[in-house]
């Protein structure tokens, strides 16, 4: 039973990770790519680590895998947040169909939404 659960967890994790990477290729601008990539890869990695834990039990390998999952769960969103903030301040363009950008409005300064040529 636990074996089967472990396999399911591993497969779900791998599937979501690959979908996240596909999102990284398909979406039009940095911020949307980041959304897809961080969400899917975080859950995917946690799934894989949970699968490793379920398949190996309370051994050194399994417990460390759980620790790694916890670590990824905390750090990947923080890294994405820091990078998104940095790029907004740096002036990486938003996609041309972006509805509004209250961050740049509040900071003052020019709009960084891409214009159609």
């Amino acid at each position: 039973m636990i074996e089967v659960l472990g396999w399911i967890s591993l497969c779900v994790g791998v599937g979501f990770t690959v979908l996240g990477c596909l999102g990284l290729v398909r979406f039009p601008d940095l911020y949307n790519r980041m959304q897809a990539a961080t969400k899917c890869v975080t859950l995917g990695t946690c799934g894989i680590m949970l699968g490793v834990f379920l398949r190996s039990g309370f051994t050194s390998l399994g417990v460390k895998a759980l620790l790694c999952a916890l670590f990824v769960l905390i750090t990947v969103p923080v890294a994405a947040h820091a990078l998104a903030r940095g790029s907004l301040i740096f002036g990486v363009r938003l996609w041309k169909h972006t509805e509004r950008d209250e961050f740049t409005d509040d900071r003052g300064g020019e709009s960084i939404i891409e214009v159609d040529k």
Binding site: G13, T17, C21, L24, M34, T38, V41, T45, V76
Partner: peptide, 12 residues
């Protein structure tokens, strides 16, 4: 961000 995600994938 691509390199960061790649590192997480290598970790898994």
């Amino acid at each position: 961000i691509a390199v960061d995600i790649m590192a997480v994938i290598f970790s898994s």
